[in-house]
Design a protein around this nucleic acid. Sequence first.
RNA 1: GCGGGUGUAGCUCAGUGGUAGAGCGUCACGUUGCCAACGUGAAUGUCGUGGGUUCAAGUCCCAUCACCCGCUCCA
Length: 549
Amino acid sequence: MASEATTMDRIVALCKRRGFIFQSSEIYGGINGFWDYGPLGVELKRNIKDAWWNDMVRTPPTGPDGREVQMVGVDCSIIMNPKVWEASGHATGFADPMRDCKLCKLRFRGDQLIRTALYEVSAIPNSGTIEELVDLADKKPEISFLADCTPGTHAQEYAPIIKRLLKARKVEVRVVPHEPVVSGPVGTSVAYWAIDGKSYRMVQDFTGESSVEIQACPNCGGELTEVRQFNLMFPTFVGAVHDEGNKAFLRPETAQGIFVNFKNVCDSTRVKIPFGIAQIGKAFRNEINPRNYTFRSREFEQMEIEFFCNDKDAMMWWEWWRDVRINWYKSLGLASDHLRPRNQTEKELAHYSKACTDIEYLFPFSEEPQELEGVAHRGCFDLTQHAKHSGKDMSYFDDETKERFIPTVIEPSAGADRAALAFLCEAYAVDESRPSPELMRFHPRLAPIKAAVFPLVNKDGLPEIAEPIFRELKKRWPVQYDAKQSIGKRYARMDEAGTPYCFTIDGQTKEDGTVTVRDRDTGHQVRIAKEQVAKFLEEKLAQAGGASL
RNA sequence: GCGGGUGUAGCUCAGUGGUAGAGCGUCACGUUGCCAACGUGAAUGUCGUGGGUUCAAGUCCCAUCACCCGCUCCA
């Protein structure tokens, strides 16, 4: 097996060579963060999206309450009224203020430097700042810091940051029982610390209203640049005149199209809570630094579900969707230990979110697993925001219980391109014992080409037998016919395309009507009657869990 | 956005300022007839792009773009 570093290079080379993925606008030097799918890639990605739509929308698994799960779909416009993004928080929140240290060149998120502060609890806010603590540490080098944090807070997560801010001074962290955390204003999270005998509470102010600001680099004390704003939404203009009045944005996620259509779907389709709305579509994010092949593209495709339910059932549905989504990846071949579901820590959660699992995959390009999908409990945040900003009622009336409420939302949000990349990486295999070592072990349901038909030689009446078989299969599946060059080369090409089965017509076919079937993964061959080829393929694809396409 | 690296045929890569190269792949023909077989031949190059130095630039200099690695980021 090749080293990790070169495995990704070889996958990238194969994807180019065989027509899975090309760099966008390549003949003009490419464009950073944009990629194209070639003839095999488009089939792979379409199979992924079709599998998702079929398995999640048309025939979702039975729900946790033993009943059928209601799912409907939408397909919304990419450009929406800009007010949508004010309501969703993207207009202001979807921005990362960055500051660089001019000395050591480290980069920090400005909001983290700004918004983290420690307050002495006895005096209640404004009695201490991190800078004052640093001063204290400088004046009393003999003291060590002991941080207490209550279970369930994220103070422990901040130990390394505190340590860094205090210039590597010894910091001990201990979990101790503590009074329940007093809830702060919306957007504020609180944790308690004990440092040098005094109690402090840490405030992370996500509203950005805090005036506490750090001016020196936490790493080296060097001077920091001014805060630079990055907004990750792509601006555009609606109409021929380009001015601020008709500025709009390419959507950074498909979810908002679902939320703003919540009432329309309720009013037109007789759905009752609990139910879900699904959408597959392009989204755009002006990433600061696209990296890792197609993983962080600026234009990408999402497969999103917003599942609306009563808040009292929300955790049940969250757990159910989390498991459904993990099993979906497994069922299509991501069964290896490269698939790593990970619960978000409380610190990572958005302030309105109660739980979120990132379904992560260990790609060859990184030692850290990377996110394929997030299954988030979003509370009633989104519908509440849209109710507030649009002035429209977003509540739901339950006829059975006579309750009126704003539904809680569970959001399984998957990246189609990331899934495609994960399936490509998972399928890639090198077996030096084979004549053609590189092969793509795609799940048959995802394979771009389901089967190939070869006459062993391009004469002696074999093409005349092979072609009708090919034409029969072609009516039902994406299949290929190849009569040129040696049989080994043809098998090798199909291995790199990830084609699970090859049917070869040889001299014996003329005598007894049988053809050989070669299995991609084992190279083993069996003979079956030529009339049974379609049935064989149908059964194999069905065994693999795939509907006939 | 910072630092480092890379950029030559479809892929992987050689190439000392002086004629644009190899292996693999692709295609054709022949031979063979179940695993990238063999033989003969062919096609394929804005040497990433734009400037500059030079009699002469793939090679040296500057800028720029793309990709990779690290930092950073990934609500």
